[in-house]
């Protein structure tokens, strides 16, 4: 994202850079004063809501709460360097939650984005009828607040109420979406249902921005619609696919609403089912340093996976 921003900046700047160095410095100073005035309200809030909480979390993760021998009285806070990190990484409940989320992401994100891409391509196809209706229908789940969608699905899979298991029973399939084995697929389904339309619309918007001459030329050359999709359209919407993948990785890392809502009908969703869940559990136990450590590790992992993915696609992109 940032690499693309650079040339635009240079372009707006050439009014300034054409002059002598001294005048340029003066203009830059004048710019800065105006810019700072305009930036102040946002910057103050950004500091309060992002920077300070992040700094606080990192700081707290370096301390440990020590209780006296009997566990009576308030615990004292002692510096623990990276000791919490060693503890958290050895905590099988936490590492298990990371593995679970990774696994859900590895299966669910490709399914969701594959479906989003397929639907976007079909919507973009010339022969498709009722485009408006289909587009709205696919996008509708995004209009539901995430937690309301989750709540709806919790009822939809609730063994006592579920119309889905009722239908499955009618065809002789003994389905129970809240059994321990089915929990991950059920949550994956909730995510796919809620976010496919959003991703589809991002990809579809990118498809719409492709100059029509391109596919027209390919069609003249006798390319079938499927081959135009594969060789022209999909490479052209690569930035949109990368963007949606990164957003999905971040979204999966913060998985919380779905399992939390599901817990009321599926008590087998454990108290550290996802990393965020684990951090909240630690807070409920009044151990913020532990929760802070878990948060930092999760944030770092998210960054590593996101940037790792970006690196990977950049490398394969340059080979092409």
């Amino acid at each position: 994202m940032t690499a693309h921003a650079q040339p635009r900046e240079l372009r707006t700047d050439n009014r300034v850079s054409g002059r002598r160095p001294l005048a340029r410095a003066a203009a830059s100073r004048r710019n800065r004063n105006i810019a700072l005035l305009f930036l102040t309200p946002f910057a103050l809030l950004f500091l309060a809501v992002y920077i300070i909480p992040i700094a606080y979390t990192v700081d707290q993760s370096l301390y440990k709460l020590r209780h006296d021998g009997l566990g009576l009285g308030a615990p004292t806070k002692v510096f623990n360097a990276l000791g919490n990190y060693a503890d958290v990484l050895r905590d099988s409940a936490f590492t298990g939650s990371i593995e679970r989320v990774l696994l859900i992401g590895l299966v669910q994100v490709p399914i969701m984005l594959g479906l989003a891409l397929l639907l976007a391509l079909l919507l973009d196809a010339r022969s498709t009828v009722l485009k408006r209706f289909f587009r709205l229908a696919y996008f509708l789940p995004y209009a539901l607040p995430g937690v309301v969608g989750s709540l709806m699905w919790a009822y939809l899979v609730d063994p006592g109420l579920s119309p889905i298991t009722a239908l499955a029973h009618d065809i002789g399939w003994n389905l129970n979406p809240t059994s321990s084995r089915m929990l991950a697929p059920t949550i994956g389904n909730m995510l796919t249902w809620g976010w496919t339309g959003y991703n589809m619309l991002i990809i579809y918007s990118a498809l719409q921005a492709i100059p029509p001459e391109l596919s027209e030329a390919a069609r003249m050359d006798g390319c079938s619609a499927w081959r135009i999709s594969w060789h022209v359209k999909i490479p052209m919407v690569r930035p949109a696919l990368i963007l949606t993948t990164v957003f999905s990785i971040i979204g999966t890392a913060q998985l919380y609403n779905e399992p939390a809502t599901l817990q009321t009908v599926a008590p087998n969703v454990g108290s550290s089912y996802t990393p965020i869940f684990a951090a909240f559990t630690a807070v409920a136990d009044n151990d913020f340093p532990y929760a802070a450590t878990e948060s930092v590790i999760l944030a770092l992992l998210t960054l590593i996976v996101s940037f790792g993915f970006l690196r990977l696609v950049q490398r394969t992109g340059s080979i092409r």
């Binding site: 707006t12 830059s28 930036l39 913060q254 919380y256 965020i276 998210t302």
Partner: peptide, 25 residues
Amino acid sequence: KFPFRGSGALFNIVLAAVLVPQPLL
């Protein structure tokens, strides 16, 4: 509209915030 030294870096910090999982905050 008012580029100054460091405005690019500032913008990158703001962009990075989009990547922070919100529930962690």
